[in-house]
């Protein structure tokens, strides 16, 4: 049974509003795409949507209360709050370097959670 969906491609400022028809894991047709990247984007969004989680972690430090963190690559969109719950358990102490791995391979998604700022003391 073919299904239809509107997807806004956000890869460039044109932001094409794609009309996509798909069945199972196959795209049947795509309209309003102005470049080939539209198909690639639509396919990811339909069958494998993923997002980078960005949040903060409390830190014991002289001047800072938090350090910002992110996943090194996108994690499944539907599980973003599960990843968040893992990050929420973490407390850190300075010093922390940018890029330090806070959680390795979070929930087995192949992404690490890393610090995005250096906190020296």
């Amino acid at each position: 049974m073919a299904q239809e969906r509107k997807i806004i491609c956000i890869l460039c400022p044109n932001c094409c509003e794609l009309d996509v028809s798909y069945e199972g894991k196959e795209i049947l047709s795509i309209e309003n795409d102005r470049c080939p990247r539209g198909l690639e984007y639509a396919s990811e969004e339909l069958f494998n949507p993923a997002r980078t989680l960005i949040t903060t972690v409390p830190i014991k430090s002289r001047n800072w209360k938090t350090v910002s963190v992110r996943t090194t690559k996108p994690v499944p969109k539907s599980r973003i709050f599960d990843v968040y719950d893992e990050v929420k358990k973490i407390r850190l102490r300075a010093p922390i370097n940018r890029g330090d791995i806070i959680i390795e391979n979070v929930l087995g998604f192949g992404a690490d959670v890393i610090a995005t700022r250096t906190v020296k003391e």
Binding site: T52, I54, T55, T56, S68, R70, R98, T116, R117
Partner: peptide, 20 residues
């Protein structure tokens, strides 16, 4: 702390603190 920084200057998708 969100990303979207550095795409033009560093060809990387940095967060604000990373860009800084």
């Amino acid at each position: 702390i969100h990303d979207g920084f550095g795409l033009h200057l560093f060809d990387k998708n940095y967060t604000g603190p990373e860009y800084a």
